[in-house]
Simulated scan of single mutants.
Amino acid sequence: MKRLIMAAVMLFTVAGATAAVAGDLDDIKARGVLRHVGIPYANFISGAGDGMEVELTKMFAKSLGVTYEFVESGGWGVVVQELIGRKVKVAAGKAELLEEAPVRGDIIANGFTVLPWRQQVVDFATPTFPNQIWLIARADSPVKPIKPTKNVAKDIVLTKAQMKGKTVLAMEKTCLDPGLYSLDATGAKVVCRTGNLNEMAPAVLNKEADLTILDVPDALVALDKWKGKLKIIGPVSDKQQMAAAFPKTSPQLLAAYNAFVKKTQHDGTYLALIKKYYPTATRYFPEFFKGMK
Protein backbone atom coordinates (compact mmCIF):
# COMPACT_ATOMS: atom_id res chain seq x y z
CA MET A 1 0.00 0.00 0.00
CA LYS A 2 2.83 2.38 0.91
CA ARG A 3 4.50 1.63 -2.43
CA LEU A 4 1.29 2.51 -4.28
CA ILE A 5 1.01 5.79 -2.40
CA MET A 6 4.66 6.66 -3.09
CA ALA A 7 4.23 5.81 -6.76
CA ALA A 8 1.16 8.05 -6.93
CA VAL A 9 3.05 10.90 -5.26
CA MET A 10 5.96 10.53 -7.68
CA LEU A 11 3.59 10.50 -10.66
CA PHE A 12 1.86 13.65 -9.40
CA THR A 13 5.21 15.36 -8.86
CA VAL A 14 6.45 14.54 -12.35
CA ALA A 15 3.16 15.62 -13.91
CA GLY A 16 3.29 18.90 -11.96
CA ALA A 17 6.84 19.56 -13.08
CA THR A 18 5.90 18.83 -16.69
CA ALA A 19 3.00 21.29 -16.49
CA ALA A 20 5.38 24.05 -15.46
CA VAL A 21 8.09 23.46 -18.09
CA ALA A 22 7.78 24.02 -21.83
CA GLY A 23 9.25 21.37 -24.10
CA ASP A 24 11.93 21.83 -26.71
CA LEU A 25 11.94 20.32 -30.20
CA ASP A 26 12.65 16.70 -29.18
CA ASP A 27 9.94 16.83 -26.51
CA ILE A 28 7.38 18.11 -29.02
CA LYS A 29 8.28 15.44 -31.55
CA ALA A 30 7.99 12.79 -28.84
CA ARG A 31 4.61 14.21 -27.78
CA GLY A 32 3.50 14.47 -31.40
CA VAL A 33 1.70 17.78 -30.92
CA LEU A 34 2.65 21.45 -31.33
CA ARG A 35 0.51 23.64 -29.10
CA HIS A 36 -0.14 27.06 -30.60
CA VAL A 37 -1.34 29.40 -27.85
CA GLY A 38 -2.84 32.63 -29.09
CA ILE A 39 -5.52 35.29 -28.85
CA PRO A 40 -8.11 35.88 -31.60
CA TYR A 41 -6.89 39.18 -33.00
CA ALA A 42 -7.10 41.07 -36.30
CA ASN A 43 -6.44 38.69 -39.22
CA PHE A 44 -3.77 36.71 -37.39
CA ILE A 45 -6.24 34.47 -35.57
CA SER A 46 -9.85 34.87 -36.66
CA GLY A 47 -11.41 32.69 -34.00
CA ALA A 48 -13.06 30.67 -36.76
CA GLY A 49 -10.15 28.29 -37.35
CA ASP A 50 -8.16 30.40 -39.78
CA GLY A 51 -5.91 33.46 -39.90
CA MET A 52 -2.38 34.23 -41.05
CA GLU A 53 -0.68 32.90 -37.91
CA VAL A 54 -2.94 29.85 -37.79
CA GLU A 55 -2.02 28.86 -41.34
CA LEU A 56 1.68 29.56 -40.83
CA THR A 57 1.85 27.61 -37.56
CA LYS A 58 -0.07 24.69 -39.07
CA MET A 59 2.53 24.55 -41.84
CA PHE A 60 5.30 24.63 -39.26
CA ALA A 61 3.75 21.75 -37.32
CA LYS A 62 3.45 19.77 -40.55
CA SER A 63 7.12 20.43 -41.34
CA LEU A 64 8.00 18.93 -37.94
CA GLY A 65 5.83 15.90 -38.57
CA VAL A 66 3.53 16.62 -35.62
CA THR A 67 -0.13 17.47 -35.11
CA TYR A 68 -1.23 21.08 -34.78
CA GLU A 69 -3.31 22.13 -31.80
CA PHE A 70 -4.70 25.61 -31.19
CA VAL A 71 -5.07 26.71 -27.56
CA GLU A 72 -7.01 29.93 -27.02
CA SER A 73 -5.25 32.08 -24.45
CA GLY A 74 -6.91 33.51 -21.38
CA GLY A 75 -5.95 36.99 -22.62
CA TRP A 76 -3.12 39.48 -23.10
CA GLY A 77 -2.39 39.61 -19.40
CA VAL A 78 -1.68 35.87 -19.14
CA VAL A 79 -0.52 34.71 -22.56
CA VAL A 80 3.18 34.95 -21.65
CA GLN A 81 2.75 32.91 -18.48
CA GLU A 82 0.86 30.29 -20.50
CA LEU A 83 4.02 29.90 -22.59
CA ILE A 84 6.79 30.05 -19.98
CA GLY A 85 5.04 28.58 -16.93
CA ARG A 86 5.66 31.59 -14.67
CA LYS A 87 3.47 34.53 -13.83
CA VAL A 88 5.01 37.85 -14.86
CA LYS A 89 4.82 41.26 -13.22
CA VAL A 90 5.84 44.26 -15.31
CA ALA A 91 6.78 47.59 -13.74
CA ALA A 92 8.74 50.46 -15.26
CA GLY A 93 9.66 48.31 -18.25
CA LYS A 94 11.12 45.53 -16.11
CA ALA A 95 9.68 42.01 -16.06
CA GLU A 96 9.74 40.05 -12.80
CA LEU A 97 9.08 36.32 -12.78
CA LEU A 98 6.71 35.22 -10.02
CA GLU A 99 5.16 31.89 -9.05
CA GLU A 100 4.70 28.96 -11.40
CA ALA A 101 1.69 28.72 -13.70
CA PRO A 102 0.40 25.98 -16.03
CA VAL A 103 2.08 25.81 -19.44
CA ARG A 104 -0.55 25.73 -22.17
CA GLY A 105 1.47 26.27 -25.35
CA ASP A 106 4.81 25.83 -27.11
CA ILE A 107 4.60 28.95 -29.27
CA ILE A 108 2.78 32.30 -29.12
CA ALA A 109 1.82 33.50 -32.58
CA ASN A 110 -0.96 36.06 -32.91
CA GLY A 111 0.63 39.27 -34.09
CA PHE A 112 2.84 39.47 -31.00
CA THR A 113 4.78 42.73 -30.86
CA VAL A 114 8.45 42.62 -29.89
CA LEU A 115 8.62 44.74 -26.73
CA PRO A 116 11.64 45.17 -24.42
CA TRP A 117 9.94 43.67 -21.36
CA ARG A 118 8.78 40.66 -23.36
CA GLN A 119 12.32 40.10 -24.63
CA GLN A 120 13.40 39.69 -21.01
CA VAL A 121 11.24 36.57 -20.57
CA VAL A 122 10.78 35.02 -24.04
CA ASP A 123 12.83 34.55 -27.21
CA PHE A 124 11.40 36.07 -30.37
CA ALA A 125 11.72 34.42 -33.76
CA THR A 126 12.37 36.00 -37.15
CA PRO A 127 9.86 38.88 -37.51
CA THR A 128 6.78 37.98 -39.53
CA PHE A 129 4.97 41.32 -39.66
CA PRO A 130 5.79 45.03 -39.49
CA ASN A 131 4.12 47.17 -36.88
CA GLN A 132 3.74 50.70 -35.60
CA ILE A 133 1.28 52.38 -33.25
CA TRP A 134 -1.02 54.88 -34.93
CA LEU A 135 -3.51 57.39 -33.59
CA ILE A 136 -6.97 56.74 -35.04
CA ALA A 137 -10.09 58.93 -35.06
CA ARG A 138 -13.56 58.87 -36.53
CA ALA A 139 -13.68 60.31 -40.03
CA ASP A 140 -15.91 63.16 -38.81
CA SER A 141 -13.57 64.09 -35.96
CA PRO A 142 -12.24 67.68 -35.92
CA VAL A 143 -8.78 66.23 -35.19
CA LYS A 144 -6.84 66.45 -38.44
CA PRO A 145 -4.16 64.07 -39.74
CA ILE A 146 -0.65 65.46 -39.45
CA LYS A 147 1.41 66.39 -42.48
CA PRO A 148 4.27 63.84 -42.55
CA THR A 149 7.74 65.37 -42.26
CA LYS A 150 9.73 62.27 -43.36
CA ASN A 151 11.12 62.22 -39.81
CA VAL A 152 9.32 59.71 -37.59
CA ALA A 153 10.38 61.39 -34.34
CA LYS A 154 8.96 64.74 -35.49
CA ASP A 155 5.79 63.04 -36.73
CA ILE A 156 5.29 61.44 -33.32
CA VAL A 157 5.57 64.83 -31.61
CA LEU A 158 3.02 66.32 -34.02
CA THR A 159 0.65 63.38 -33.49
CA LYS A 160 0.86 63.49 -29.70
CA ALA A 161 0.11 67.23 -29.76
CA GLN A 162 -3.27 66.34 -31.24
CA MET A 163 -4.19 64.37 -28.11
CA LYS A 164 -4.31 67.29 -25.69
CA GLY A 165 -7.71 67.60 -24.05
CA LYS A 166 -9.05 64.53 -25.86
CA THR A 167 -10.08 61.11 -24.51
CA VAL A 168 -7.72 58.46 -25.87
CA LEU A 169 -8.24 54.70 -25.59
CA ALA A 170 -5.35 52.40 -24.69
CA MET A 171 -4.95 48.91 -23.23
CA GLU A 172 -2.48 47.92 -20.53
CA LYS A 173 -0.22 44.85 -20.81
CA THR A 174 -0.40 44.96 -24.61
CA CYS A 175 1.44 46.83 -27.34
CA LEU A 176 -1.13 49.59 -26.71
CA ASP A 177 -0.03 50.10 -23.11
CA PRO A 178 -0.04 53.89 -22.54
CA GLY A 179 3.12 53.66 -20.45
CA LEU A 180 5.11 52.54 -23.50
CA TYR A 181 4.44 55.85 -25.25
CA SER A 182 4.24 58.32 -22.34
CA LEU A 183 0.64 59.20 -23.13
CA ASP A 184 0.14 60.74 -19.69
CA ALA A 185 2.47 63.55 -20.73
CA THR A 186 0.32 64.52 -23.72
CA GLY A 187 -2.46 66.21 -21.77
CA ALA A 188 -4.93 63.59 -22.96
CA LYS A 189 -7.43 61.78 -20.77
CA VAL A 190 -6.23 58.21 -21.22
CA VAL A 191 -8.89 55.55 -20.84
CA CYS A 192 -7.59 51.99 -20.50
CA ARG A 193 -9.99 49.41 -21.84
CA THR A 194 -9.97 45.71 -21.07
CA GLY A 195 -10.89 42.88 -23.38
CA ASN A 196 -9.77 42.37 -26.96
CA LEU A 197 -7.72 44.73 -29.14
CA ASN A 198 -10.28 44.12 -31.90
CA GLU A 199 -12.75 46.20 -29.86
CA MET A 200 -10.74 49.44 -29.87
CA ALA A 201 -11.84 50.78 -33.27
CA PRO A 202 -15.53 49.95 -32.72
CA ALA A 203 -15.33 51.72 -29.35
CA VAL A 204 -14.24 54.94 -31.08
CA LEU A 205 -16.97 54.54 -33.70
CA ASN A 206 -19.44 54.17 -30.82
CA LYS A 207 -18.10 57.44 -29.39
CA GLU A 208 -16.68 55.92 -26.19
CA ALA A 209 -13.68 58.17 -26.76
CA ASP A 210 -12.38 60.78 -29.19
CA LEU A 211 -9.35 58.80 -30.28
CA THR A 212 -7.62 55.45 -29.88
CA ILE A 213 -4.10 54.25 -30.36
CA LEU A 214 -4.03 51.17 -32.56
CA ASP A 215 -1.36 48.94 -34.01
CA VAL A 216 -0.96 48.52 -37.75
CA PRO A 217 -2.61 45.10 -38.25
CA ASP A 218 -5.77 46.05 -36.39
CA ALA A 219 -5.82 49.48 -38.04
CA LEU A 220 -5.59 47.95 -41.53
CA VAL A 221 -8.46 45.58 -40.72
CA ALA A 222 -10.57 48.39 -39.24
CA LEU A 223 -9.96 50.77 -42.15
CA ASP A 224 -11.04 48.07 -44.56
CA LYS A 225 -14.02 46.91 -42.50
CA TRP A 226 -15.39 50.40 -41.83
CA LYS A 227 -14.42 52.15 -45.05
CA GLY A 228 -14.71 55.92 -44.86
CA LYS A 229 -15.55 55.94 -41.14
CA LEU A 230 -12.05 56.11 -39.64
CA LYS A 231 -8.87 58.05 -40.36
CA ILE A 232 -5.21 57.85 -39.39
CA ILE A 233 -3.96 60.93 -37.53
CA GLY A 234 -0.31 59.93 -37.35
CA PRO A 235 2.26 57.69 -35.63
CA VAL A 236 2.63 57.37 -31.86
CA SER A 237 5.64 55.05 -32.00
CA ASP A 238 8.64 54.29 -34.11
CA LYS A 239 8.36 51.28 -36.39
CA GLN A 240 8.10 47.95 -34.57
CA GLN A 241 8.01 44.29 -35.51
CA MET A 242 5.85 41.31 -34.67
CA ALA A 243 7.13 37.78 -34.25
CA ALA A 244 6.33 34.40 -32.77
CA ALA A 245 7.58 33.91 -29.20
CA PHE A 246 9.17 30.85 -27.62
CA PRO A 247 10.29 29.93 -24.10
CA LYS A 248 13.96 30.61 -23.47
CA THR A 249 14.22 26.88 -22.72
CA SER A 250 13.33 25.97 -26.33
CA PRO A 251 16.32 27.03 -28.48
CA GLN A 252 16.04 24.09 -30.89
CA LEU A 253 12.35 24.73 -31.53
CA LEU A 254 13.14 28.42 -32.13
CA ALA A 255 15.91 27.52 -34.60
CA ALA A 256 13.60 25.14 -36.47
CA TYR A 257 10.92 27.83 -36.71
CA ASN A 258 13.39 30.44 -37.97
CA ALA A 259 14.58 28.06 -40.69
CA PHE A 260 10.97 27.35 -41.62
CA VAL A 261 10.03 31.05 -41.83
CA LYS A 262 13.12 31.82 -43.95
CA LYS A 263 12.05 29.13 -46.40
CA THR A 264 8.49 30.48 -46.65
CA GLN A 265 9.78 34.01 -47.23
CA HIS A 266 11.80 32.81 -50.22
CA ASP A 267 9.41 30.35 -51.86
CA GLY A 268 6.34 32.59 -52.10
CA THR A 269 4.37 30.96 -49.28
CA TYR A 270 4.71 33.85 -46.84
CA LEU A 271 3.79 36.63 -49.29
CA ALA A 272 0.78 34.62 -50.42
CA LEU A 273 -0.46 34.68 -46.82
CA ILE A 274 0.20 38.43 -46.58
CA LYS A 275 -1.79 39.09 -49.74
CA LYS A 276 -4.62 36.92 -48.41
CA TYR A 277 -4.91 38.44 -44.94
CA TYR A 278 -3.28 41.90 -45.18
CA PRO A 279 -3.33 42.94 -48.85
CA THR A 280 -2.37 46.58 -48.16
CA ALA A 281 0.54 45.84 -45.80
CA THR A 282 3.16 45.88 -48.56
CA ARG A 283 2.03 49.36 -49.57
CA TYR A 284 2.52 50.81 -46.08
CA PHE A 285 5.76 48.93 -45.28
CA PRO A 286 7.52 48.11 -48.57
CA GLU A 287 10.95 47.96 -46.90
CA PHE A 288 9.87 45.11 -44.61
CA PHE A 289 8.87 42.90 -47.54
CA LYS A 290 11.77 43.87 -49.80
CA GLY A 291 13.56 40.85 -51.28
CA MET A 292 10.78 38.39 -50.50
CA LYS A 293 9.25 36.42 -53.35
Results as ranks from 00 to 15, higher is better:
Pro148Gln: 12
Asp123Ile: 02
Ala22Trp: 03
Gly16Cys: 15
Ala219Ser: 04
Thr113Met: 09
Met59Phe: 14
Glu53Asn: 15
Trp226Met: 03
Thr113Lys: 02
Val37Ser: 11
Ala161Cys: 07
Val152Leu: 14
Val80Glu: 00
Leu25Gln: 02
Glu172Met: 05
Gly74Ile: 07
Tyr181Met: 14
Asn206Ile: 14
Asp215Pro: 06
Lys229Thr: 08
Leu11Met: 14
Glu96Val: 09
Asn151Val: 15
Leu135Arg: 03
Phe289Glu: 06
Gly268Val: 04
Val21Ser: 09
Leu197Ala: 04
Gly195Tyr: 03
Ala259Pro: 13
Ala203His: 01
Pro247Gly: 03
Trp76Ser: 02
Lys2Phe: 08
Gln81Ser: 15
Trp76Lys: 00
Ala101Arg: 05
Gly85Ala: 11
Thr264Ala: 06
Lys275Ala: 15
Gly195Thr: 03
Ala161His: 08
Lys276Asp: 11
Cys192Tyr: 03
Asn110Ile: 04
Arg35Val: 11
Ala109Arg: 04
Val21His: 13
Met200Thr: 04
Gln240Asp: 01
Val216Ala: 08
Leu4His: 11
Ala125Glu: 01
Asp106Cys: 04
Leu169Trp: 08
Val190Trp: 13
Gly228Val: 07
Gly187Pro: 12
Arg138Thr: 12
Ile39Glu: 01
Thr128His: 05
Lys248Tyr: 06
Lys229Phe: 10
Ile213Pro: 04
Thr128Ala: 09
Val191Phe: 12
Leu254Lys: 10
Thr126Cys: 08
Tyr284Pro: 01
Pro217Met: 03
Gly165Tyr: 07
Val216Tyr: 10
Val191Pro: 05
Ile274Val: 14
Asp184Val: 04
Pro235Glu: 08
Ala222Leu: 06
Ala61Asp: 10
Pro145Tyr: 02
Gly291Ala: 10
Pro235Asp: 06
Val90Phe: 06
Leu205Ser: 02
Ile28Phe: 13
Val157Trp: 06
Gly179Arg: 02
Phe129Ala: 01
Gly268Met: 08
Gly74Leu: 11
Tyr278Ala: 02
Val190Leu: 14
Thr13Lys: 09
Ser237Ala: 10
Phe112Ala: 00
